[in-house]
Simulated scan of single mutants.
Amino acid sequence: MHPTTPDGRYFVVKGQLWRCSNPALPDEKRQHLVHDLMEARRAVKEAKALDDEDKLHAARASVDLAKVALGERGPVWWDDGSPDYNRHKAINTPYADWYHSIDEQQ
């Protein structure tokens, strides 16, 4: 399990922030989108195995569409005007103190 920022916007992997899915999505919708994402990821793997650039491009576009729909990419799902720190090192963001505190606990 990866630690999640106190505001629930990001989880941390190897010191890097990754945006969480929009918690306001209804469970059924989220499950459908996660299913679509997993299918798209399998299509990426298959396209790579086939060395098919056209299929790879289409599969990666499907991954992106699912991630945007989940709120993990694209416009942020929060509405307080806070900037997006997706893919930033936690130590270089306002989450640095929080990150140091959890890092010390592990």
Rank of each mutant, 00 (worst) to 15 (best):
E28W: 00
P3R: 04
H32V: 02
P83M: 09
V13R: 15
A90G: 11
V76T: 14
D7G: 05
T93K: 02
V13N: 09
D103T: 00
A43T: 01
R41Q: 10
V12T: 11
L33A: 03
R41V: 06
L50G: 04
S62W: 04
R42E: 13
R42F: 00
A58F: 05
H88P: 01
L56C: 13
P3C: 09
W78M: 05
K48G: 12
H32D: 12
S62C: 08
E53V: 07
K29F: 05
G81L: 06
H35D: 13
K55Y: 11
W18D: 06
P26R: 02
W18M: 13
V44M: 02
S21T: 13
P26D: 14
R73V: 04
T93P: 11
R9Y: 11
T5Y: 04
L37N: 05
V63Y: 07
E46W: 00
P26A: 12
G8T: 08
M1F: 14
D7T: 05
L50F: 03
E46C: 02
E104N: 08
K45R: 11
A49H: 06
M1V: 15
E28Y: 01
G74N: 10
A58L: 12
Y95E: 03
Y10V: 10
A43W: 04
A49Q: 10
A43V: 03
Q106C: 03
A59H: 02
G81C: 11
A96D: 11
R30W: 05
W18Q: 14
K45A: 14
P94E: 12
G15F: 02
A49T: 01
R9Q: 14
A96Q: 10
S82L: 11
G15E: 10
R30N: 02
C20W: 00
H2T: 15
D80Q: 07
R60A: 09
L56N: 12
T4R: 14
D7L: 10
N22D: 15
S62H: 12
K29C: 01
V63N: 01
G71K: 04
S101H: 11
W77K: 06
V68G: 12
Q105C: 02
Y85R: 03
P6Y: 00
G71T: 08
H2D: 14
A69T: 08
T4K: 13
P23D: 08
L65Y: 11
Q16W: 08
D80I: 02
I91P: 00
V12F: 08
Y10H: 10
R42V: 00
G81N: 09
A59R: 03
F11D: 08
E28D: 15
D52M: 07
R30S: 03
H100S: 06
A66V: 06
V76W: 00
E104I: 03
Q31P: 02
N22H: 01
W18H: 15
M38C: 01
L17H: 04
